[in-house]
Write a protein that binds this DNA or RNA. Structure first.
Lengths: 327, 327
DNA sequence: GGCAAATATACAAACGTTTGTACAAAAATC
DNA sequence: GATTTTTGTACAAACGTTTGTATATTTGCC
C-alpha cells in the first residue's frame, strides 16, 4: 500500500506537505498541490483512514444502535441515514441490542472505542431511562436519538408525530361517518402509545364526541390481542377502530371477517403502521404510516448540521379500503 | 481517556508489559497479569481500537455491502451476520450500493481503507462480473459473497438452494393433484432465476409431465406482470403456478380473484418469497422461503472458520392455503 | 556457588497520519 | 538595499497500540 511518505519521497518533499496538499490546506502552493495530487493518483494512493482517525482522535464513521436490524422500521431508518451520511463522506457501523440493556451498553462502548463521529440510537425496550448513555458516551460525542427517545438525554431527537397522527387518523374515521370509534392502544409505559391515545381522544372531543375509556383496549399490539379487542369493541357497539399497531389491526380484521361484518361499509379501521402487508391485503388496510426512511435522513441531517433540537416527522395517512366509505 | 501507558506508569511497569498482560500473552507472569487487569478495571481502561487496528494493520470490523439495506431479504442477512459476528468480537459496517456498480466500487474501497477483517458482498444488479472486486480487494482480504455471487471470484459463497427449492415447490403442487402447472419466471440473466426454472422443469419431468415452454412466463417479477402472466396461464389451461417472486404471485392472485376462480380448489399457487405479507393475506400464500437470517449467520461462520467453499442454504416450503387442497 | 537455561520485563521502533513550530525563500514595504 | 511581512516547506512530535530484540531476573542443575 502506498503512503504519503512514498509520495513525498518520490516528489522530494516531506510527508507533511503531502498531507496538507491532499487536505487542501492553504499552506501549500497551488503548483505543489497539483503535483502531489497528480502523483498520488498515479501511484494509486488512498488515505489510510485508520492512521488518520488515530491522529485526529475521531473517525468518519457513525454508529447506529437499534433493537433489531431486520425490523422493517429500523432497517428503513438505517437505509435513510446511510444514504445521507454516505453523501457526506461517512460510513455507518451498526449494532443491534436485541432489546437488551446490557447489549446496548456494550454497543455504545464499542462505538466510543471506535471513536465514531456520532451515535444514532433507538433504545432497547429494557431501558427505562438514559443514564447509561450519558455514562458511556460522555458529553463530547454527538448523540441523535430516534423513535424511542429519552427526553433527559442531550442532543437531537427525531420522533414521529404520534399525537398529531392519531388525531388525523381518528378525524378521518369521523369524517367517514363512523359514530362510535374505539381504539386498540399499546402499552402506557411507552411515550409513543400515550401520545397516540391523546391524539385519538383530542380528535373525538374536538368533534363533540365523548371519550369513552371502556372502548380503549390497552396492551394490544399483536394479532391475537387485536382479535380479542375487536370482539369486545363489537360487543360495546363500536363501528370503527383506530389501532396503534398493524398486527393488532390484522387481528381485528380476522374478528370482523369471522362475524361477517363488512369493511368498510359496517365497520371502519385505521392502523398505525409501516408494514408493507397493509397495502397488499384485501380489503387493504388504511394506515397512519411513520416515515422511517425520512426519520433516518432527518437524523443524519441533524448530525451533519450540528442541530440538537427535537424534530417531529409527520405521519402519513394512507386512506385505503378499510376506512373508505366514499368510494 | 486512560491508556496503557497510564496503567504502566501507575504500576511501575512498561506499556509493553501491560499490552501483553491484557492480551493474555504467556510472556508475562500470572501475578503481574492479574495486577494489570485489576488496575485496568479500576482505572476504567478500554483499549483504543483505532490505535490497535493501526498497529495491527487490520481491524475487527466486517464490511457488509448490499444493494439496499431496507429490503427485507438483505436486512435479515445483515441481522443474522451481525448476531454471529458480534459474539466473536466483530462489529459490522454497512454500505448500500443502490444497485450501482460505481457505488459498489466506492464501498469496497472505503472498506479496504478501514482495513476491515472481511467483506461480505451481494452484488449490485449493474455488476456483470467480479473483476472490479478482485481489483479493489486484492487477495489478502477475505471475501464472502452471498445470494448474488460470481463464481469466478475467490472465497466463500452462500447461496440459496434455488434449483432444489423450486423442485420441491413444484413437486408439492403436483402432489396436490394439479395437472397443468405453469411458472412465473424471472429474468434469465440472473443465475438464481435460471436455477429455479431448472428445478421446476426437473420436478415436472421426474413426475412424467412434459415441460411446456408456452406456460413459462419470463421476466415477471412485479405485481402487474404477475397479473398478466396469470391471465395468460388461465387461457393456456393452467390450474397452478409456481412463481419465482412474491409480488408477481400477488398479481396472479388479483387475476384469479377477478375471474372468480377459487384458490386452492380450482387453482394452486406457490411463490418464492421472504415477504411477510404472504402469510397474512387471505387466502394465505404458500411460499418457498429463502432463509436470509440463516444466510447471514452462515456467511459469518464461513468467515470465522476460514472456509472458502460454497454453502447452499436450503429453502423452506411453507404450505399455506393457496396450494393446500387437503385441508 | 557458579554456570546455563528459562522466564519476565524493559526498550525502542513501528503503524501512517496530522499539526504546531521553526525556518527558508519570496514578496512587499520603506 | 535593508527590513518587515507573507508564503511555502521542513522538522519533529504525537495519537495508543503492538511486537521484535535486548536485558535483567529467576530458576534449575551439577
Amino acid at each position: 500500500m502506498v503512503t504519503i511518505t512514498d509520495i513525498a519521497a518520490s516528489l522530494g518533499v516531506t510527508p507533511s506537505t503531502v498531507s496538507r496538499a491532499l487536505a487542501g490546506s492553504s499552506r501549500v502552493k497551488e503548483s505543489t498541490r497539483l503535483a502531489v495530487e497528480k502523483r498520488a493518483a498515479e501511484m494509486g494512493y488512498e488515505r489510510n483512514v485508520v492512521a488518520s482517525n488515530l491522529r485526529k482522535g475521531r473517525s468518519n464513521m457513525v454508529g447506529i444502535v437499534v433493537p433489531r436490524i431486520h425490523r422493517e422500521f429500523f432497517s428503513n431508518v438505517i437505509g435513510g441515514a446511510e444514504s445521507v451520511l454516505n453523501q457526506a463522506g461517512y460510513n455507518v457501523i451498526i449494532c443491534q441490542t436485541m432489546e437488551s440493556l446490557d447489549a446496548e451498553i456494550k454497543a455504545l462502548k464499542a462505538l466510543r472505542n471506535y471513536r465514531v463521529a456520532a451515535v444514532f440510537l433507538s433504545h432497547a425496550i429494557e431501558c427505562k431511562n438514559g443514564s447509561h448513555v450519558r455514562e458511556v458516551l460522555g458529553n463530547d460525542l454527538p448523540l441523535v436519538q430516534f423513535d424511542r427517545v429519552f427526553p433527559d438525554l442531550p442532543g437531537a431527537k427525531i420522533v414521529g408525530a404520534n399525537c398529531e397522527g392519531a388525531f388525523t387518523a381518528t378525524k378521518h374515521l369521523i369524517s367517514q361517518g363512523y359514530k362510535r370509534i374505539g381504539t386498540i392502544a399499546g402499552f402506557m409505559t411507552s411515550q409513543a402509545y400515550v401520545e397516540r391515545l391523546a391524539g385519538y381522544r383530542l380528535a373525538l372531543e374536538s368533534a363533540g364526541m365523548t371519550f369513552d375509556p371502556s372502548i380503549v383496549f390497552e396492551d394490544s399490539i399483536v394479532r391475537e390481542t387485536g382479535y380479542e379487542a375487536c370482539k369486545k369493541a363489537l360487543e360495546a357497539g363500536c363501528d370503527a377502530l383506530y389501532s396503534t399497531g398493524a398486527f393488532s389491526a390484522l387481528g381485528a380484521m380476522d374478528a370482523l371477517k369471522e362475524k361477517g361484518i363488512r369493511v368498510p361499509e359496517d365497520f371502519g379501521i385505521v392502523a398505525t403502521s409501516n408494514e408493507s402487508f397493509t397495502s397488499l391485503m384485501s380489503p387493504s388496510l388504511s394506515t397512519l404510516g411513520q416515515q422511517p426512511f425520512e426519520m433516518g435522513q432527518a437524523a443524519a441531517r441533524a448530525f451533519l448540521e450540528g442541530r440538537t433540537n427535537t424534530e417531529v416527522i409527520p405521519m402519513e395517512l394512507h386512506i385505503r379500503q378499510s376506512s373508505n366509505r366514499n368510494k
